[in-house]
Design a protein around this nucleic acid. Structure first.
Lengths: 185, 185
DNA sequence: TCAGATGTTGACCGATCGGTCAGTTACCGT
DNA sequence: ACGGTAACTGACCGATCGGTCAACATCTGA
């Protein structure tokens, strides 16, 4: 509604599609229909705007983090966690896309570094760290984020409805991560 | 050895770590220990350099493509294909990272568009296109590329040896994609 | 020995980058 | 009616971008 929020949304879309370094403040201004100077009136810098665009997703990750230990317990709890995690990814698709695809190039940006730490904490909450477990976890995380981010091309161009995709993704990630739980039992 | 190949390698590393738009020709020149003008002597433009850096990986994908139909046949053939595919990803880690993380932002670059078409062909070779199959395939592709690209952070910082990683990845991708084969039988 | 490629470079170009600033407009409580 | 503040903008800044070019070094085959 407000100009500030419109700019935040425009920045999110632009950063996700063209990349942070590939996005100019002018491009964000054009997308939101304001001047470049107006962008820098609402946000002190390009980096501040990135922070504002990603923060909601980071807060959501931080909220889900306490339930992370569930991954190590019963299948029922694992499913509950997975549902929340997939919902989070779907609600913050663009932010997730930015994290997954650009976190390496944006490590020096504080907000991205914080997101990396949170994901690291989720990873560390796993019961044991066998190579197989690491691979399962990384494939699940990267694969899910990639799938949701890239919906629209690379083999998924006839995009299924969100609820269908959600159910399928939860089920398949559940299968993929099941052994991580099973080794505990 | 040659300056041209050193520049190609330097560009590959720089594009992968900082992103194409986030990499300046000067940075590539510095990494290779030559002047910016020398870079543009060997490669007509920044885009030409990207093309040269990615082409070997694209050629490798094109070579593996005829065997793609194996994904739809017996488990043995599927495993053979998976081994080749994982080996390809590991041999062209940086190029794969660039494809997966920046293909969206670089669609207008011909060499990237060609890579997208090839991956699309692999995806289209699957026997049927149920949502589950699409999800399994996208998670496998994106997850594997993500895992290999990000080896070194995000939960896999104590990086396992390449051969161990290879075996684990082949096994787990095999499990993940098994139903895609099973529905055929 | 020397003419001609081949390689390399510093200086330079226009364009665009992120960011600053003075000035203008629009609104809002008194 | 009006003073103040929030919103917005065009013009401008230094820096860096991708790319060009003329000059210079190095090597090679005749």
């Amino acid at each position: 509604m407000t100009t500030a929020s419109e700019l935040r949304d425009a920045a999110l879309e632009e950063f996700a599609s063209a990349g942070y370094t590939g996005t100019s403040i002018q491009a964000i201004a054009d997308r939101a229909g304001v001047s470049k100077a107006s962008v820098l009136y609402h946000y002190a810098s390009k980096e501040t705007l990135l922070d504002a665009a990603l923060s909601p997703a980071i807060d959501a990750i931080a909220q889900i983090l306490p339930g992370t230990a569930m991954l190590a317990r019963t299948p029922v709890e694992q499913r509950e966690f997975l549902e929340g995690f997939v919902d989070l990814l779907m609600q913050h698709r663009l932010a997730a896309q930015i994290f997954i695809t650009q976190s390496g190039a944006l490590v020096d940006v504080p907000v991205v570094a914080r997101a990396q730490e949170l994901i690291q904490q989720i990873a560390d909450a796993r019961p044991q760290r066998s190579v197989d477990d690491q691979v399962r976890f990384a494939v699940a995380l990267g694969g899910a984020a990639y799938l949701l981010a890239q919906t629209g091309h690379l083999g998924v161009d006839d995009a299924p409805a969100d609820d269908v995709l959600r159910d399928s993704l939860i089920r398949i990630l559940g299968e993929l991560l099941a052994p991580v739980v099973a080794t505990r039992a």
